[in-house]
Amino acid sequence: MKRQLCLVAAVTLSHATPALPEVAPTEVVFVDGRIETSLSGTPGDPANGIKVMTTNVLGNCVACHTISALPDVQFPGNIAPPLDGVADRWSEAELRGIVANAKMTFEGSFMPAFYKTEGFIRPGNGYTGKAPEGDLPPILTAQQIEDVVAFLLTLKE
């Protein structure tokens, strides 16, 4: 409780807007696949979004998607549609929904749900192959999701 207060205070200090509490993965409200409000209450940082999307142990979106705006990414995969112009096709709320849990938008999608902690078959502790100890964290944090969405919103054609 004290720790949370501290965090909130820190966030309020660094941004002028009052911080809303973080939405837990189990509390996310999807409306037709969309998530209307920010998960972290703090605006996303597109530069960090790039890092999350291109780092193996984080989002690793480039395992499946190509992104022309990031020509330095080595060996992007070609499993999924290129993300070029994605902000022309989807709204912020739609993109947040797709990144948090793409299966709410595309039924049965191959794309992993990055902000989900329940309903898995034999979930592991990261990539160790072992059972998780304690509660399963989402693959990305609320803020990382917001950072990714902020970067996706720059992908206009």
Partner: peptide, 12 residues
């Protein structure tokens, strides 16, 4: 198989 299942963030 162990490697492939591990790569899905699963308990193998």
């Amino acid at each position: 198989f162990v490697g492939c299942v591990r790569d899905t963030r699963a308990e193998t």
